[in-house]
Design a protein around this nucleic acid. Structure first.
Lengths: 243, 243
DNA sequence: CAGTGGTCTAGACCACATC
DNA sequence: ATGTGGTCTAGACCACTGA
């Protein structure tokens, strides 16, 4: 049925690219359902099997979630599609440190320093918002978090952050800016705690902490958020599986 | 062509399971080529497409590597299929710490302590071999490694380890015991350096280090090796991508 | 040149979810 | 009952490899 075209890139990859573009454009919002494979096959004038390959590739990247009998849904940080997706920190008892207990420390305007500017590919000194908060378990502070959002990508974020104090930054980005975080890069190191960290985490000055510096990328591959997560040695650890 | 059977588990998963079993049994050794899709399709009396799904699933897990025009090969830690697959440590300059420079410290008999025994699912006190070595860059020690292999899974490993001092333990396991490591789990924490570590890494006593405790699993899912990797804070970091 | 994996089609039946 | 994704088949053409 479909016209045979000269080979450029596999059709299913072209379809995938276009579908991603349409998700980014907001045609289907996070949590909503995509057209069925047959509908898309008709729209693109391709066989259902080719559409399937495109969607399966997106599902592998965690961009959409498929449910037999129901449909294909754009992944959202709301709902229970993939909870804890980006949470690799565990407490001493081997339990994931979730976001139920959060203590908001501060939110305020900040300029991107050299490190943040490089990470987010913005000019040094760019305006933005910086927030500090703690994650706790049963009242004990376990993680110190500091994250930066640029004014250019997330205009006017400060008042909303202060008012709503969202437990999930990525859900906040999704709802307010239609920015879907699909990938994060983390760089871990051990170092001594800073004065602020030792005070907030209630640990001795300069005692060993595990620091994760994270850059979160949107569906389009653009760096959106810079963050550091700091946990005291001994009370926290970080888990990873490599296949 | 193929007979229609009552549904139990998808055929392609059954095929995959059987192919994995045959790889484990040594029918095709690491680095060697599997029969073509058509040959396997005939052997299993299934369509080529079903065989393809089975093999593609294995390829996704890194178990085999496919090359158009050549064939499907059992993954080996030799060759250049996936170099640095399990190396997440970087030096201060942002370069992966490779295994070119290695300093062998010691190899000797050891009994599994509680931690190792739990990790490898063997009785506490089981006999085995423990090795300590350093990874260096331009003569500077950057990583301290200590790993344990059980006598039951890797009989008589000590003399060979001492004689060959293999740069890649997993290549050694593959060649000598036909055990293919396909998955590792790592747990990271920050702590102060031990006396031995500070001496070997040439850092102040109790200064912050990043420790990765690793369990390496074979193709069959059995834990095979226990290891810790220790790098000084500031000079080393650990990188990770989450999708 | 023949053989390999990579892509694509057009049909089929299944289990599951929803109404 | 209808529609969804999940599996399976049997053909086809393509680009690449190596003799």
């Amino acid at each position: 049925m479909a016209a045979r075209k000269p080979v450029a890139k596999p059709l299913y990859l072209q379809v995938k690219q276009d579908l991603v573009k349409r998700v980014v454009a907001g045609e289907w919002r996070p949590g909503h359902v995509l057209p069925s494979e047959f509908k898309l096959a008709e729209e693109y004038s391709l066989s259902q099997g080719t559409i399937r390959k495109a969607i399966e590739s997106m599902a592998l990247e965690g961009l959409v979630t498929r449910q037999a009998g129901k449909g294909t849904f754009v992944t959202s940080h709301a709902g229970d599609y993939r909870p804890f997706r980006f949470h690799q920190f565990y407490n001493g008892a081997g339990r994931r440190i979730a976001s139920e207990e959060t203590q908001w420390i501060s939110t305020g305007p900040a300029d991107a320093d050299r490190i943040i500017a490089d990470a987010l590919r913005i000019p040094e000194g760019s305006a933005g918002v910086e927030t500090v908060r703690l994650r706790l378990t049963e009242g004990t502070p376990l993680l110190y978090e500091r994250f930066f959002l640029s004014e250019s990508l997330c205009p006017n974020a400060q008042p909303v952050l202060e008012r709503e104090r969202p437990a999930s930054v990525y859900l906040f980005l999704e709802r307010r800016y239609n920015v879907l975080i699909t990938r994060v890069e983390e760089q871990l190191q051990a170092r001594g705690a800073s004065a602020e960290e030792s005070r907030l985490l209630n640990i001795p000055a300069a005692s060993p902490v595990l620091e994760a510096e994270r850059i979160a990328y949107s569906l389009g591959g653009e760096p959106v958020e810079w963050r550091i997560i700091v946990g005291p040695g001994g009370r926290t650890n970080y888990r990873n599986v490599i296949v």
